[in-house]
Write a protein that binds this DNA or RNA. Structure first.
Lengths: 240, 240
DNA sequence: CGACGGCTTGAGAGACCTCAATGTAGGTGG
DNA sequence: CCACCTACATTGAGGTCTCTCAAGCCGTCG
């Protein structure tokens, strides 16, 4: 880090994140900045991608949260993964692809078209790493649902989201925007909202976290990491 | 399909499967046949890819079963997905990739190097569709673990495996090779082997399936599909 | 034949669910 | 400024699905 006038990180989260995934050159950043100027607002609950239909052009999430979700015939709902600022939506190598899951805005969001990485190898690499991370998050989700109990699931997911928010540079004092309801979180974790509520309460009592008015704060992320036996995803040997 | 002497499908499962994912041209098939001549035997339990280490060259599974697996610090095990004949292992767009999960042989296997799709657009498309299917299987796994009960999980997974084996052309009379132990299946489904055993028994009693000596037979796949509310993955609008 | 891995069975416990009611904060209209 | 509404969070009581621990069984293989 070069020294800078004391201020909040001035870069948009999306650029912070993609720069963290691969060393972006000037041209890539310029392309991103240009795309970001053409941003669009999306209101909560709107679908950005619909399961079974053709995948629209790739988007970049600039602000707000979205999620991949699957609804069963009898109405049961399962969130497959969360989409946070700086994440890509609907990136796809294949011709004539059909969406394998719906992506829906969980809060009001802003998005833009993801600039083509056609002649920008650095950007292409960032996209590839982003895809690899997406896959890692799916695997982590499977492990959570298959083998962790309620408290471990919650701790593990919150830590993952925390680390992802750090990547995008939008964590301050261990706290970050968290626009989910308990019911949404429960539907991500394979729990009922009642049981999630009770478990969150004991975590509050244990001073693991504070969560109110859409802000989540992890009081001792390192301790929580140890407690849940969590291992963060590493996806490239390039950096670090 | 041209008419051919009446016989069992003479093609290796891998070629059958990849041809089903995209219309392969002569050159692609020739490349695959050439690669298959250089096959290698892998004994059960060996690791083909190791989590956290660099991803080796992409492989094609020709025979036997493998699985992506994650082991927790305290020994709990979670199978993330199964790798069946015709599936690709370690396909990757990124430079300097690190494996996000271990891939281990569940039975004795034969594999070969996956031919490069560099100048074979059809083969490249088949690979892309294969990757998209892999992702769809992960999403299905999440939904199973998060929102289905034991019987639904079993039915849903067995149907998925059944459909995948059909793609590779290795199902006969609704029966196929199934080299898993009950404990492995339990570790894929987030259950204990005890509970899996009891649930399988009621499914046997209900005449849903027969399973003995490494052969699994679904007695009424269509009925089971209806019963579990299952929807199969569609990933491309190209074919069908 | 004994050893082994895998399958099966029993009994009891616990984590998580269901149903239902109550509490609370923010937002809107009068 | 208050009444009201809605969405969300919280609490209680009881039920059940799945787990744990443990033992017995069965086929295979050396």
């Amino acid at each position: 880090m070069k020294s800078r006038p004391i201020s909040i990180d001035p870069m948009p989260p999306a650029i912070t994140r993609l720069s963290a995934l691969a060393r972006l050159d000037e041209a890539s950043i310029a392309a991103l900045e240009l795309a970001i100027q053409q941003q669009e607002s999306i209101s909560a609950r709107r679908e950005l991608v619909t399961e079974g239909r053709p995948v629209p052009a790739a988007k970049l999430l600039l602000g707000g949260w979205a999620a991949r979700v699957r609804i069963l015939l009898d109405g049961r709902r399962q969130f497959l993964s969360f989409v946070l600022p700086g994440d890509l939506i609907g990136l796809c190598e294949q011709r004539a692809p059909l969406a394998v899951s719906t992506v829906a805005a969980l809060s009001d969001c802003t998005i833009c078209i993801a600039p083509s990485a056609g002649d920008l190898p650095m950007l292409r690499q960032a996209y590839a790493v982003s895809r690899a991370l997406d896959e890692a998050y799916l695997l982590a989700q499977i492990t959570r649902l298959g083998r962790l109990n309620a408290q471990e699931r919650i701790g593990d997911l919150l830590l993952e989201l925390f680390e992802r928010q750090i990547l995008a540079g939008i964590v301050r004092d261990n706290a970050f925007d968290f626009p989910l309801t308990q019911e949404m979180l429960a539907d991500a974790l394979g729990l009922t909202s009642v049981h999630l509520n009770r478990t969150i309460q004991t975590m509050r009592r244990d001073r693991d976290l504070m969560w109110q008015r859409g802000i989540l704060k992890l009081l001792h992320p390192a301790a929580l990491t140890r407690k849940t036996g969590r291992v963060a995803a590493r996806v490239t040997g390039d950096l670090a």
